[in-house]
């Protein structure tokens, strides 16, 4: 199945709060057994990670930072999980791919259950479900109201990356991110020098499909602005 309804209940496993999240089984290479604590925390999130191509390319670029993929479709999540296990086994000698992991979850409902305020440095939204119909627009992953939640989990200066092959959706995401007081668009020059933009453009399975079909890809990146001083 290509789609999943983000409004239905599903049978999801999510922590009651970020403090109660058990990361150690997902990133055993970053767990200090003696002190019973993680040596690093998730700072990069790929929301709707699909088949995991982006994370796999990002992993060697950010070896000390934890990268989490969130995916709502059960089978797809299972596939990515198996893929990561295999990669870790193949790269045992270098301890590679210890910093990526995936979980099944509904990011639109439960992002604050996983991350503390200001925990994330980067959030990726790659080829999200376009939800073409007007009345389905609330189901889009970028909306005015959800952007406030992303601003909450992102630290000041953190980056939102978006890419899609649907121009309408691109314009919609740009419109909403530009209208949101906590985000500011980054320039084309910035995009050209950023390693992650290049990876995002070429690494994801969706992106490669678009290239094969000779479609266009639209990129927009935004910086999380400082929290206004008169707020908490």
């Amino acid at each position: 199945r290509a789609h999943s309804n983000p409004f239905s209940d599903h049978c999801l496993d999510y922590p009651t709060s970020p403090d109660s999240m058990e990361w150690k089984n997902m990133y055993p290479g970053f767990y200090d057994k003696e002190r019973d604590e993680m040596t690093s925390q998730v700072e990069i999130a790929d929301i709707g990670c699909g088949y995991g191509g982006l994370m796999i390319k990002l992993a060697p670029e950010f070896p000390q930072q934890l990268i989490l993929g969130m995916e709502i479709r059960v089978q797809v999540t299972q596939y990515v999980e198996d893929r990561i296990i295999a990669l870790r086994e193949q790269n045992q000698h270098t301890n590679g791919y210890q910093n990526i992991s995936v979980l099944r979850g509904n990011a639109m409902k439960f992002i604050p259950n996983f991350f503390h305020k200001g925990q994330l440095q980067k959030m990726f939204f790659c080829f999200p479900d376009p939800h073409f119909k007007q009345r389905k627009h609330k189901a889009r992953i970028i909306t005015n109201t959800l952007l406030s939640e992303y601003a909450y989990v992102l630290r000041e200066g953190g980056i939102v990356y978006t890419i899609t092959d649907v121009e309408d959706l691109h314009l919609w995401m740009v419109k909403h991110l530009e209208a949101h007081p906590m985000f500011e668009r980054l320039s084309k020059e910035w995009e050209q020098q950023d390693k992650c933009v290049e990876i995002m453009y070429n690494a994801t399975e969706e992106g490669q499909k678009v290239t094969r079909n000779k479609g266009s890809k639209f990129v927009a990146c935004f910086k999380r602005l400082p929290t206004p001083e008169d707020t908490e």
Partner: peptide, 24 residues
Amino acid sequence: RDEHIRVTNYPKSYVIKSWLFGHR
């Protein structure tokens, strides 16, 4: 309905202060 209590600044309601976690 999803166990969340959220505290948001007003009138700058685009700034979330916190979530209160405890309900199941």
